[in-house]
Amino acid sequence: MFLTEEGTVHALDDTCTHQDASLAAGWVENCRVECPLHESTFSLRTGEVDQPPAKRGVRVHQVTVQDGEVLVELSTAAPQLPPGVEVR
């Protein structure tokens, strides 16, 4: 879950699509999160990746904020896990 400086809330899978790194430890700027390990950054809105080493975007979940409560609707799409990592 990310809260941007602009006050928007976003929900993404935590695992980077390149390797097993937690995106929650990454850096958020301009509505993108930069992976804490290598160069790739992901859009908080669409999950799309901008540059290698990651090639695939990360799965995003639908977020609505109602009366200060954050509601997350989990995506039904398959997660984009890095090679060798399985759903825990």
Binding site: A21, S22, A25, G26, W27, E34, P36, L37
Partner: peptide, 10 residues
């Protein structure tokens, strides 16, 4: 220490 190193670099 991913968080701390990211912050430092940033």
């Amino acid at each position: 220490r991913l968080r701390e190193v990211v912050r430092w670099r940033r």
